[in-house]
C-alpha cells in the first residue's frame, strides 16, 4: 500500500507537463535581470524578492517553496546573503536538482573577488558575513564573469539552447562594456567623493567609482543606527566632511534623512537593485539611475 502510494506520487510528479522554457528561481532581482538578458524567452524567471525587501530578512514563505519545487535552476548571490531563508527553501522543496553542489544551484558570489572578508569572525562585531561583503552586483564589471559562467550553466542544463545562451551573453557583454565605459565617463566627478552610508551596501559601487566611505550609520553591520552613534558620526563630519548620505530603497529613510539635515548634505536613495526606483527597470537602468542620482547629490 505504502509503496503503491509512493509510486503514484512519483508518477503524478513527473507526469505534469514541463514548460518549454527553463524554470529559473532567482533570489534577488539583479540575477533575474541578468538571466533574462542572457536567456531571453528561453527562460521563465521567478524572482523571490523585490528591491524593497532586505534580502537578508526574508522568510521561507510557502510561495517560495512552491516555486523552488518547480525550478530547474536557482540563482543565488551566496556569501551568506540568503542564509536566513534559502537553505530551508532548498531543503523543503523536495527538488534534488537545485541542491548545493548540483548544476541547478548557481551562486554568483563564487565568480567574483569578495571584499571585506573579516579576519576575525565574532558576532560582537555585528552580523558579519564570513565569506565577505555579498552586495556584489553594484560593481558592473562583476557581471561579466557571473554572466559568462551563468550562460555556460544554462547551456549545461538546457543543451539544445546552449548556443543561444552563449550568443545571449556575448550580445549582452558588448552592450555592457559600452555602457560601463559610458558610466565611468559620466561618473568621473564622483572620484574621491566622501560619502556616508546606511549599511555597507555600496562597497563594490564605491570601489568601482572611487567613492570614499567616511562612515556607516549602522554602528555594526545589521545593527540599527542609534542616536548616540549618529551623533558621533555627525561630530566626525567636522573633520572629514562627507558630501552625501547613501541608502538603498529597502532601508529606513529616517537615519539618513536625520544625518542629511544635521550635516546639511543631501540624503541619496539609490535603487541598489533592479526595481529599486521606477527608472531602474533593468540592469542598464539600474546603473544609469544610480549614477544620475549620485551626480545629482553632488550638486
Amino acid at each position: 500500500m505504502f509503496r503503491r502510494i509512493l509510486t503514484l506520487l512519483i508518477a503524478l510528479g513527473s507526469a505534469l507537463p514541463a514548460t518549454a522554457a527553463l524554470n529559473v528561481f532567482a533570489t534577488v532581482p539583479e540575477w533575474a535581470a541578468l538571466v533574462r538578458e542572457i536567456g531571453g524567452n528561453k527562460v521563465s524567471v521567478f524572482t523571490a524578492t523585490t528591491a524593497l525587501q532586505d534580502p537578508h530578512r526574508i522568510e521561507a514563505r510557502p510561495s517560495l517553496l512552491a516555486q523552488a519545487r518547480r525550478a530547474q535552476l536557482v540563482i543565488a548571490t551566496g556569501a551568506d546573503l540568503e542564509v536566513g531563508w534559502l537553505p530551508v527553501v532548498l531543503r523543503d522543496s523536495g527538488n534534488a536538482e537545485i541542491q548545493r553542489g548540483r548544476p541547478g544551484y548557481f551562486e554568483a558570489a563564487r565568480w567574483v573577488t569578495l571584499i571585506d572578508i573579516p579576519a576575525v569572525l565574532d558576532r560582537t562585531q555585528g552580523d558579519v558575513h564570513a565569506a565577505g561583503n555579498p552586495h556584489i552586483q553594484l560593481d558592473p564589471r562583476n557581471l561579466f564573469r557571473i554572466g559568462e559562467a551563468l550562460a555556460a550553466r544554462l547551456g549545461e542544463l538546457d543543451p539544445p539552447n546552449a548556443a543561444a545562451y552563449v550568443a545571449g551573453y556575448q550580445a549582452f557583454a558588448v552592450k555592457w562594456r559600452n555602457a560601463i565605459a559610458r558610466w565611468e565617463k559620466e561618473a568621473t566627478p564622483l572620484r574621491g567623493v566622501p560619502v556616508l552610508v546606511h549599511h555597507q551596501s555600496f562597497r563594490y559601487l564605491g570601489q568601482w567609482l572611487g567613492l570614499k566611505e567616511t562612515g556607516t550609520l549602522e554602528p555594526k553591520p545589521g545593527v540599527e543606527p542609534s542616536g548616540k552613534h549618529l551623533s558621533s558620526l555627525l561630530a566626525t563630519q567636522q573633520n572629514t566632511p562627507a558630501r552625501m548620505v547613501l541608502r538603498t530603497a529597502y532601508q529606513n529613510a529616517g537615519p539618513s534623512e536625520w544625518m542629511a539635515q544635521k550635516a546639511g548634505i543631501p540624503a541619496v536613495m539609490l535603487p541598489f537593485t533592479v526595481g529599486g526606483t521606477p527608472e531602474a527597470g533593468d540592469l542598464f537602468g539600474l546603473f544609469d539611475d544610480t549614477i544620475r542620482r549620485l551626480l545629482k547629490g553632488l550638486n
Partner: peptide, 17 residues
C-alpha cells in the same frame, strides 16, 4: 578573479562552451 573593466568580455576571455 579580478576583472578590470578594460579586459573582460568575449575578446579576451573566450566563453567556454
Amino acid at each position: 578573479t579580478a576583472a578590470p573593466s578594460s579586459t573582460p568580455g568575449i575578446a579576451t576571455a573566450p566563453l567556454a562552451t
